[in-house]
Design a protein around this nucleic acid. Sequence first.
DNA 1: CCATACCATGAATCCATCT
DNA 2: AAGATGGATTCATGGTATG
Lengths: 367, 367
Amino acid sequence: MTTTKTQGATALPLNTILSGDCVEVMNSLPAASVDLIFADPPYNLQLKGQLHRPDNSQVDAVDDHWDQFSSFATYDRFTRDWLKAARRLLKPNGAIWVIGSYHNIFRVGSALQDAGYWILNDVVWRKSNPMPNFRGKRFTNAHETMIWASKSEGGKYTFNYEALKALNEGVQMRSDWVMPICTGHERLKDENGDKAHPTQKPEALLHRILVGSTNPGDVVLDPFFGTGTTGAVAKMLGREFIGIEREDAYRQVAEKRIAKVRKFDREALQVSAGKRAEPRIPFGQLVERGMLRPGEELYSMNQRHKAKVRADGTLIGQNIKGSIHQVGAFLENAPSCNGWTYWCFKRDGKVVPIDVLRQQIRSELEN
Amino acid sequence: MTTTKTQGATALPLNTILSGDCVEVMNSLPAASVDLIFADPPYNLQLKGQLHRPDNSQVDAVDDHWDQFSSFATYDRFTRDWLKAARRLLKPNGAIWVIGSYHNIFRVGSALQDAGYWILNDVVWRKSNPMPNFRGKRFTNAHETMIWASKSEGGKYTFNYEALKALNEGVQMRSDWVMPICTGHERLKDENGDKAHPTQKPEALLHRILVGSTNPGDVVLDPFFGTGTTGAVAKMLGREFIGIEREDAYRQVAEKRIAKVRKFDREALQVSAGKRAEPRIPFGQLVERGMLRPGEELYSMNQRHKAKVRADGTLIGQNIKGSIHQVGAFLENAPSCNGWTYWCFKRDGKVVPIDVLRQQIRSELEN
DNA sequence: CCATACCATGAATCCATCT
DNA sequence: AAGATGGATTCATGGTATG
């Protein structure tokens, strides 16, 4: 453990996990001493019953005691309290990141604004492998939202524009980040082999946040430390961290984890530049975008069949409804069919394969 | 213009753009008469004007904070007012979509929750061609956020799951949608060739929203109608719309625009529906019709269990009597079981799922 | 050793209808 | 109105067992 003296008499307990209630602990630390705060507070999920997958297995819900709040008012009070204590700790040019879902993020965002923070961006973490919506009653909840805010309007927050651009293959970093959820070896397990924490965040997320909004040597505080992703990544990247965590079990896992982490020798920020596959374009997108109209007729390559486009991107032919692929296969009496190359539309008397439209969308996406 | 009589004496002005303040106009319409509301409220530009003090670098922090709070309070009041009026208009099973950016969406989301709406998803519109951040001081603001909420917790909102899945090439629709911003021919221009509205939304966005959360004939209201994207797409898709817009110029553009729109033909508006839409067939009917004989044996999908059909359409297995579902669940020690897909019968040595018989009855019903 | 198949699981506000 | 019942519903990934 390292400590440094700040302007006051109080020592700043660097690279330590403090135990206790985060508001109390934060209030015991010297004001204006922290460069960045990353916070992953309870989401207040308000889950009622149980949920089963279609295969009858039960979903392991986040029903921990620390996520229980009796009302929005209670949650708001909790949020205002910790945001106030956090703001006091920030240096004038400090900043904060908070992550949440639709259950809590609107409360958090409003409280941030009310407390005097200045929102810089909301950043969306698009999960490449989210849990599906098993009952088919809503959209797959495929993202979480992060809010990035400076301590005050006009604060000279840190933003390493070029580093982020480099991380993004030379293109300016956007407000939507695609990353997988934390699984595999990165996911910490307890002695029983169960996940050590129900909501462990991926290190890649913290990597991008810390590279983008701190400099080496900066002090990063995490008031809901959990199993210490923030601390682990901060250590790798040569930043100082302070963790606060109430639960003994989480603190113990985090201590062990961080002890094993080695700081990177150099700027070893390899970006995986793997060849990415061409993005899949659903046929329905051509309809939504008005490139093809519902009711418009498509013609088969060989001109022997036709079918009509429906509003949901399916086709209807004689005796058959389904996707462009299904209808093509049916009409050709074939086991399968690539609808993209099979179907054509007419424009100004010309017959054009629909695949041309797909290419058009793909070229837009490359920008 | 079409109007219909509702339960009260007040007529509902369908397919009309009403002029005036949206709260007053909404309060003049009959309660519980609207299926869906789509709202694109102002993003709190007034706030920005107040907060950006000209070249005053030494602004007192407390003053600044107070300023912020008072401005947000004004915006919050405005938001609460129109959300309350909107909620009154919604049918019990109605729903709302609101779109916004980080400037206002957290206020809107909190107000929605406080007003008794029940958030179903937040959906991110990920722009494939956003405006870059020219000064390189923040992330490219590449998305906007939409909140989808039912009128109340437990409301039986419309969700055309299968149609959305079809739009997405057979994979369940996620909460992040990639779409280009409104440009090109779709972007409405005024007589000077300038854009007619600063924040015209793409029709593709409304297409997905209306296909997903309304049915043909539903009433869709847009209290901030602008140049009428909601009305144009509603008309195409055979939904009824009501627009409210304060500015004469926008109303005029919208009127012209919508007049040109043609409704898609009926067949094209038909959309994929799942099994849930199929009529329910009691298992006992298979016995009554003689498709299965009392005493006949059924075999589980995995061939591990068998049970005997009884005259009343229940099954009897070892230690268990009950419906096809109950017996299946018991034998598999599962919380539930779909007996239709679990049980098979034998004919001419072949094993056939009983669901085939149900399909047979259903196809008879179609005639 | 490799290829394939099977299985487990992730911050989830996840049913509709009839008795 | 509460309780019981019918029966509809999943995607990406990593780990493990099998061949």
